Simulated scan of single mutants.
Amino acid sequence: MTSHTITAAASGTWKLGDLEINRIGFGAMRLPQTGEAFAADAAPRDRDQAIAVLRRAVELGVNHIDTAAFYFSRLRSANELINRALAPYPDDLVITTKVGPHRDPSGEWWHAEPEQLRGQVEENLRQLGRDHLDVVNLRMLGNRSIADRFGALAELRDAGLIRHLGVSNVTPEQLAEARAIAPVVCVQNQYGIGVRPDHDAFVRDCGEQGIAFVPFYAIAGTGREAGASGADGDEVLAVARAHGVSAAQVRLAWTLHRGPHVLAIPGTGDPDHLTANVAAGALRLSEDDLALLDGLHRRGA
C-alpha cells in the first residue's frame, strides 16, 4: 500500500452531531514536546516542525483535531500551536477539546469542580481563538457521578459556548447518566488491540446509540503517554508483513474495523509518521486478518 497520495477521506466519514468528519483525525497531545507527554523534563518540540505537521495534516484531509488546554510543555501549548498553524480555520475543521483535569504551570494536576468548568472552557476559547468550541469532552477521573459536571457543561452548550458534548474515560453507567442530561456525540476511552477487551460490548453499544467511539492510545496501548513500546505480538507483525505496512498502521486499521462509528486520533510530531497514520485509513483487513487480531485482543495481549 503506497501512502504518499492517501488522504483521510479513505477512512470514511462519521458525524459528530451535525459536524461531518473523516474517521482518521489527529491527536495533539504529543505536539508540545518530544518524548513522554506530561513528563516534567520533556524537551519542547521545535515550533516550526509542530506547525508544519498540523498544516500537513489538514492538507492530507484531516478535519478532526483532538486537543486540550492541559497539553503543554515548558514552552509550547498544543492549543496555541493549532491557532498559530491553522487560523483562520477551514470551514470543515472540527476541533475537539476536553475539560475536567487541569495542570498548573508546575505540572501539578487537579480535577475541576463543576463551577470551575466555565473557566476551562473560556481558557480553550482564548487559546484557540474561537468564539465557540465544536466539541467538548468531559474527562472523568474515577467512578464518580458525572451529573453535576456534565450539567454545568450542558448549561454552557445552551449558552452557545459549546456546540456538542462528549465524555471521556467513562463507564457505560456514566454515559447513561450524561445522556439523561444532554445529547452525547462521542465517547473517548482507552482502547486498542489487547487493551480493554472488556470494553468490546461498550464500543458496540455506542454505535447502536449513534455515538462515536474514539479510542486513545490505540497505537501506544499500555505505553500510554510514553508512546508505543515496539513490543508487538506475532499476530500484529504477521498482518503488517502481509500488507507491507507497519504494526502501528495495523493497530489503527483494526480499531477502525470495530465499527463505522469508531474514529482514530493518532498523534505525532513526525511528518512521516503522520503520513503513515493517515494512510492506515485505507488499509482493509481481511476476515482472516481480523480473526487473528481479535484472538490476540481477547487474550489481552
Rank of each mutant, 00 (worst) to 15 (best):
W14S: 05
N79E: 11
R45F: 02
L93W: 02
D92E: 14
V53I: 12
N83M: 07
L54V: 05
R30N: 12
P90W: 01
R47T: 10
V58A: 09
E36K: 15
I6E: 01
L86V: 03
R74Q: 14
R45E: 10
R84E: 10
R76T: 05
T13Q: 14
D92K: 02
I95P: 00
F38V: 08
F70P: 03
T67I: 03
S11Y: 02
G25C: 04
P88V: 08
G100S: 01
V53D: 00
Q120W: 04
F72T: 00
N22P: 00
L117W: 01
W109F: 14
Q49A: 15
V53F: 02
P101E: 11
R103Q: 07
G12C: 06
N22D: 04
T7V: 13
A43V: 15
Q116R: 15
D91M: 06
A40L: 14
S73V: 09
S77W: 07
R23K: 12
S3I: 11
N63V: 09
I82S: 01
G100W: 01
L16A: 01
H64S: 09
A40S: 07
T13C: 13
T67Y: 00
L60K: 10
N83T: 06
G27I: 09
G119N: 11
R84S: 13
I21H: 00
Q33G: 09
A112G: 15
Y89F: 10
A43T: 10
S73F: 05
D46L: 12
P105W: 07
Q116L: 15
G107E: 07
E113S: 14
V121M: 06
I24A: 04
V62G: 04
R118K: 14
L31A: 07
L54N: 03
A28V: 08
W110M: 08
E20Y: 01
L81I: 07
L31Y: 02
R55C: 08
A8D: 03
A8I: 04
G12F: 00
G17Q: 03
Q49M: 14
V94N: 00
Y89A: 05
G119M: 07
E80Q: 14
S106G: 10
Q120F: 04
E80H: 08
N79D: 13
P90T: 03
A9H: 11
F38P: 06
D41K: 08
A10I: 05
I24M: 11
P101T: 13
A52M: 08
E123A: 12
M29Y: 04
F72D: 01
H64N: 15
R84D: 08
I65C: 04
T96G: 09
Y89Q: 03
R47Q: 10
F70A: 14
A9N: 14
D91S: 13
F26G: 01
K15F: 07
I6H: 06
F38L: 08
F26N: 01
P114L: 15
A52Y: 02
G25N: 02
G25H: 06
L93Q: 02
G12Y: 03
T97C: 10
S3E: 15
V121C: 09
L54A: 02
R74I: 13
